[in-house]
Nucleic acid binder design. Structure first.
Lengths: 345, 345
DNA sequence: TTGTAAGCGTTATCAT
DNA sequence: ATGATAACGCTTACAA
């Protein structure tokens, strides 16, 4: 680690440690002359303050923990990228953790973060009640917690996400408008958001007087390997196809399922959009490179990241007792980007 | 932060702080009886040691810094995912930074990491000499640095990457074997790896007695937005097409260029693989969902991550002077995954 | 087996 | 404007 300490500088300059500290921190109490001398000496000897000592004294680390399900989805990667940029802009660093959509990993990650000492935590929980007790305890006793992305969670704190019901409704409506009414909903099993996205789907069908068919809802186990997910998708799709219900559209409620679906359909020689239209949640940057260019429900990740981070910083810097604060839930607008996969002429 | 301190426990149990510390750390000096009592009390009062104090005392943070160019490429995301898993398995946490392929950001990130106090740094530098002085200084004076992915860099330390010359050679060879000999090389401008990957391409052409045509090397400025990259790609490709040189294959030397290329070709109505075959570097998990399924040069990210991390931990835990160590450069094997984009029947 | 005391490198308080 | 001193919460010789 760094070699010369503040004490050492004090000795060498025949000044006291406190004077050095103040000089380096530009205190008004110190004369310009002394400041100049001290700073120059520090620079020459490549002084780097020991952050740990500072943090111990100040009681904060300037680190915030970010706990995401899995960085390997473009959506999560975008979130992390923007969170990082916002954090840096505010002189905070990000300690990154992923839960891999497993409650046990999530618990471990949370323990690590608190034992490690972070000033606050941003989390997209595995599901609607995962580690609720632990997270509540951390929020009360350790450091503030802000929820993002997966915000349907019974914790009294700031939450930033999207209106899942509404955006799924709108996407479903797009399909209906191009006269595709036999719509499959592709869902992640045991995922918090599934419930709400399905509700939007149901509501749209109802409003357009389209009968619900439970066989049209496909659940895929999400915590498996990608290969297994492909297999399950293939099975479900071909079963559906053979059963004679002849769906003509699919709405994918998660990014992974939506993007993998395209590969599965290609290998089954099912044509998109001719045989079946596809729209789905995804923030993938190369939607145009997919087969075919994918119509997506796009989430405003940059805004989600900066808003969530700002709210967390507010909590970190707030003097108020955490029970005195009135917490907000912010729902951001999504946008629907139509491309070839729903282009029905 | 946590409420009860070790001192406090000592007071309440009428023992000394050192006894408590030893008891909690299972020291052989402490009687079982006392240990039991102390631990039980600690548990009941939800004692959490202050990590900062501990780290100050011990002089290490158990954090390592990871500095990647940009998390929004599937390859980087994979690396980070596996780095995280390896780190957790070794009780280390990851502080994540990205350089966005800008030297200035890289410098800032490095400064932050050292000021922040990390036990070691893993970095994929922006280019072959970016921040060389700073990184050398950090490696010598602050904490060990290990290079990965982009390892052609004049720093004496462990390096983990792939053999870019060889793997590009093999990919080019695949194209030649299916009789596509007028091959465009698509390169990132001012990117460290470009040089070596091009060398592999050149060597393959030479070995198969195919004349090199400089017009077949396309450079795209990498530090731009994706839209701009698409534009530039479109221009370059259509110019090439019009000029009558009629290429029949493209090799993409970076993931971003390769994947975006597919979108551009689709919009130009150029058929892959009929009109032109495509192969390129990419670790994208849904290569099968691309238009068409993309033949890729796949890098062993999991191995790269765990190897790099292990080497870094070795350096962190090594008692030796850093100049006494003989550093290794490890080149991992890539694999070529052929899919439809090079399937010429 | 347990306790005492020093110290890690800062910053903050209060004198001078 | 500068300095002395205490403190942050823990670990670790060394003493008892």
């Amino acid at each position: 680690m760094a070699k010369i300490t503040l004490k050492e500088i004090a000795k060498r300059l025949h000044l006291s440690p406190s004077t050095i500290s103040k000089a380096l921190n530009d205190s008004y109490e110190i004369s310009e002359e002394t400041k100049k001398k001290v700073k120059q000496f520090a620079q020459q000897h490549n002084y780097q303050p020991n952050p740990l000592a500072k943090y111990l004294k100040l009681g904060k680390t300037n680190n915030i923990g970010v706990l995401l399900p899995n960085i390997q989805s473009p959506f999560s990667a975008q979130l992390l990228q923007y969170l990082h940029q916002s954090a840096i802009a505010n002189s905070y660093n990000i300690i990154f953790m992923q839960s891999m959509d497993h409650e046990k990993d999530e618990e471990r990650a949370l323990m690590t973060l608190t034992n490690q000492g972070v000033d606050g935590i941003l989390i997209a929980p595995v599901h609607e009640t995962s580690n609720l007790e632990l997270i509540s305890k951390i929020h009360q006793e350790n450091c503030p917690v802000v929820l993002f992305d997966r915000i349907h969670y019974n914790l009294d704190t700031h939450k930033v996400g999207i209106d899942n019901i509404k955006s799924t409704y709108l996407a479903t409506e797009e399909l209906i408008k191009v006269n595709r009414k036999n719509i499959i909903a592709l869902c992640g099993k045991d995922i918090g958001i599934t419930h709400h996205r399905l509700e939007g789907y149901r509501k749209a069908l109802e409003d357009y007087n389209i009968p619900m068919n439970d066989a049209n809802i496909i659940y895929i186990d999400y915590s498996k390997t990608l290969n297994k997910i492909d297999e399950d998708l293939t099975k479900s799709i071909s079963r559906c196809w053979r059963s004679g219900c002849t769906p003509n559209a699919i709405i994918g409620t998660t990014e992974t399922l939506t993007t993998r679906l395209l590969g599965v359909l290609a290998s089954l020689k099912i044509q998109v959009p001719e045989d079946i239209a596809v729209i789905g949640y995804s923030n993938i940057e190369f939607a145009n490179s997919l087969n075919p260019a994918l119509s997506t429900i796009y989430q405003p990740t940059e805004e989600m990241a900066s808003t969530a981070l700002q709210l967390l910083l507010d909590l970190i810097n707030s003097k108020k007792d955490r029970s005195q604060i009135d917490f907000q839930t912010i729902l951001l607008e999504t946008s629907i980007q139509l491309r070839k996969s729903t282009a029905l002429t």
